[in-house]
Each structure stands twice: as C-alpha cells, then as structure tokens.
C-alpha cells in the first residue's frame, strides 16, 4: 500500500525580487512519507522550513523541484504539478490544513465558517450547520458565539474556529501547523483528543508541534529538518 503522503526530492526557495533579488533556499532534496494512521512531527528550529513543507503539501507554496504525491480518491495526485482544479478537489476532499492564522470573510458567523467545509463537500446545509455547532461546542466555543463573526474573537477562540473548520470533516490527510499554539491546557487536551481520534480512524497526519509535551502525546514519529545550504 502506498503512503498517504510521499514527498520525493522536494526543493523550495524564495527569490525576493524587490529586495535585490535575494534567493533563500529553504528546502533542498527533502523526502518524507506518511502512512495512514501515522502522526509525523516535523522538528527543527524556527525558520528551518517546517511550515514550508506543510504549505508545499497543501500546494499553498509552489515547489521548485520534486514530487509531492498525495493519495486522493483511487489514485495519487502530485500536488507540485497538478492543475489548480485538481488541487482544489484534493483540498476539498482529502487534505485538511490547520494554518496558524484564521482567514475568513469579515462578518460571517463562526458556525457558517465551519459549516462551509461540509457544504463544499456537498452536505445538506442544515446538517452541515448542526455538525459545525457540535464541533464548536466540543472546542468550548460557547453557543452564544456561534452566530458571531470570529473577527471579534480572542486569539485562542479564533484558533479553535480554525481547528473546527478542519476537524468537522473526516479528512484522510491532516496538516497541522502549531494547532495548540495559543490554547490553554483544557482546550489543548481537546485538540489532542481530536488528533488521536483522527489517527485512530486512519488519517495520515503531518504536524508541527512546538510544545514537546504535545508532540510526545500525539506524534508516532519525529522527522528532524536540517538547514538547506544558503545559495548565492
């Protein structure tokens, strides 16, 4: 059986055209495989490229070289080469990404933000809203906040909305970028439970967990990142 995520020879650099054309090489020849039911923690100092890996898998960043194969439907899609519409289908059905920031339309209610994940997958709007409320409740967002727009929420609440919009669906692949960063202990435990449940139902998870306690609690394996050589 092929891995849910298989990265082969991934290279990623950034050229800053407006800052003298400086080229920053972040990844060079990076390999990774994540099987279903695994939770792999990417580990290394800040700026080493952990988020870049996750973003490349999500095709939020474009890879310079290499292949990023994600098991999708009955086949695999190379996220480094796929057509935008294919990438969108993969994001809709297969890969969930919890980023560090919540980016939503101002004035849209939290429950609608979360429900949209399911509606995008063709769920009945009413059922989607119900599921969204359940997930928000589970993440300790009180019911009276569900109809409010998350822009007014605290940082921790926003992060939980961000988590809810991904965990509300059973994605086969999860990319978690510091999912517990701004959470208190109680909410952190809820998230740990959600991650374990996801792994338990067979999701392949790649994550960045700054907090070693969290990492030890959920990671089945740790992959260290080493600095790519800075190119001229």
């Amino acid at each position: 059986m092929t891995a849910a995520i298989r990265i082969e020879g991934l290279a990623k650099s950034f050229t800053l055209h407006n800052q003298g054309g400086v080229r920053l090489s972040v990844l060079d020849g990076f390999d990774l495989a994540v099987e279903a039911g695994e939770c792999v923690a990417l580990h290394g100092p800040s700026g080493i490229g952990k988020s870049t890996v996750l973003r490349c898998i999500y095709a939020n960043y474009r890879a310079d070289r290499g292949r990023i194969l994600v098991r999708h439907r009955d086949g695999t899609v190379d996220m480094a080469a796929a057509h935008p519409r294919e990438i969108l289908a993969v994001r809709r059905e297969t890969v969930g990404h919890v980023s560090q920031f919540l980016r939503v339309i101002p004035r849209v209610a939290a429950e609608d933000v979360v429900a949209e994940t399911l509606r995008g997958r063709g769920a009945d709007p009413e059922a989607a809203t119900k599921a969204a409320r359940r997930m928000l409740q589970r993440l300790n967002i009180p019911a009276e906040l569900h109809r409010l727009a998350p822009a007014t929420f605290s940082g921790g609440e926003q992060q939980r909305v961000n988590l809810a919009r991904v965990f509300v669906a059973d994605y086969p692949v999860l990319l978690l970028d510091e999912p517990t960063a701004s959470l208190d202990r109680e909410n952190r435990d809820v998230v740990l439970k959600l991650i374990r449940e996801a792994a338990g139902r067979g999701a392949a998870i790649a994550g960045i967990f700054h907090d070693s306690e969290v990492r030890d609690a959920v990671a089945t394996r740790t992959v260290p990142l080493i600095a790519a050589r800075e190119a001229a």
Partner: peptide, 21 residues
C-alpha cells in the same frame, strides 16, 4: 496565474511580489 492563495502567499513574478507586499 495560479491558485489564488498560491499567487498571494508565494508570488513568483517581481510585480506580483510588489503588489502583494
């Protein structure tokens, strides 16, 4: 051209980078 978040988060062309920044 490309996926919206790709173009905005990882712009390649000097002009796109200028626009985003």
């Amino acid at each position: 051209s490309g996926l919206t978040d790709q173009v905005l988060d990882d712009p390649q062309h000097p002009y796109s980078q200028l626009l985003v920044s």
